[in-house]
Amino acid sequence: MTSLSARHRDGFTLMEALVALAILAIAGAGLIGATEAHIDQVRGLQNRVVAQWVAENRMAELSLQGGTPTDGTDRVDMLGRSWRVEVEVRPSDDPDLSMVNIGVTPVGARGAAAKLTGFVDRQGGSA
């Protein structure tokens, strides 16, 4: 025969269950916050990679055009997003080369997600 006090020790008390639920709720909220931060970091990395591709594509286009590239701003759509591409051309020490700075920014955002500096041969072909 079990006594009354022995039966009460078989399970959790209401207070113990509430404390356990509170700990789980706090841990769950922390896990959700960490997951959101990770998703934001991955999204930022994805934006920088795509912006770098846009910049490299623009550099290749300028290299293939031949002649002296010109300054300008353009809009490019890539992977479902719109990007603002700013091209700045400067002379270099070599008269056959132009130094090209390319900045790529998501449309509606501030600050360039990627910057690329390279040289374009004024006769056609990249350096």
Score class of each variant (00 low, 15 high):
residue 39 I to F: 00
residue 48 R to A: 07
residue 21 L to V: 13
residue 47 N to S: 11
residue 80 G to D: 04
residue 110 R to C: 04
residue 86 E to Y: 07
residue 88 E to K: 11
residue 114 A to S: 12
residue 61 E to M: 05
residue 68 T to K: 15
residue 89 V to D: 11
residue 53 W to M: 07
residue 107 V to R: 13
residue 17 A to D: 01
residue 23 I to M: 14
residue 124 G to T: 06
residue 97 L to H: 01
residue 46 Q to E: 15
residue 11 G to R: 10
residue 45 L to M: 09
residue 123 Q to M: 14
residue 30 G to N: 04
residue 84 R to M: 13
residue 8 H to D: 00
residue 57 N to M: 02
residue 79 L to D: 02
residue 111 G to F: 03
residue 98 S to V: 15
residue 96 D to K: 13
residue 114 A to Y: 06
residue 19 V to P: 03
residue 76 V to E: 10
residue 38 H to V: 05
residue 52 Q to A: 15
residue 108 G to P: 06
residue 103 G to S: 13
residue 105 T to N: 05
residue 23 I to A: 12
residue 52 Q to Y: 08
residue 25 A to S: 08
residue 44 G to E: 03
residue 77 D to P: 03
residue 108 G to K: 07
residue 76 V to K: 07
residue 35 T to C: 03
residue 21 L to T: 15
residue 87 V to E: 13
residue 95 P to F: 10
residue 13 T to M: 11
residue 125 G to Y: 05
residue 126 S to H: 00
residue 11 G to P: 02
residue 52 Q to D: 12
residue 11 G to H: 07
residue 7 R to M: 14
residue 54 V to P: 01
residue 33 G to S: 12
residue 38 H to D: 00
residue 18 L to E: 05
residue 66 G to N: 06
residue 25 A to P: 09
residue 89 V to R: 10
residue 127 A to K: 08
residue 41 Q to A: 00
residue 106 P to W: 10
residue 109 A to Y: 12
residue 88 E to Q: 13
residue 92 S to P: 02
residue 10 D to S: 14
residue 96 D to P: 09
residue 88 E to N: 13
residue 91 P to I: 05
residue 76 V to T: 10
residue 96 D to L: 14
residue 117 T to A: 15
residue 38 H to I: 04
residue 68 T to Q: 14
residue 35 T to Q: 03
residue 53 W to K: 03
residue 10 D to F: 07
residue 42 V to W: 01
residue 71 D to P: 08
residue 10 D to G: 11
residue 93 D to V: 09
residue 49 V to Y: 01
residue 97 L to I: 14
residue 87 V to G: 09
residue 83 W to C: 03
residue 26 I to D: 14
residue 121 D to E: 11
residue 110 R to E: 14
residue 107 V to D: 14
residue 38 H to W: 09
residue 21 L to H: 13
residue 21 L to K: 04
residue 9 R to G: 03
residue 121 D to L: 07
residue 107 V to P: 08
residue 109 A to N: 13
residue 112 A to V: 07
residue 80 G to W: 04
residue 103 G to R: 14
residue 16 E to H: 10
residue 54 V to I: 06
residue 94 D to W: 03
residue 72 G to T: 05
residue 81 R to I: 01
residue 103 G to A: 15
residue 54 V to F: 01
residue 94 D to Y: 03
residue 62 L to A: 03
residue 61 E to R: 10
residue 127 A to G: 08
residue 81 R to K: 02
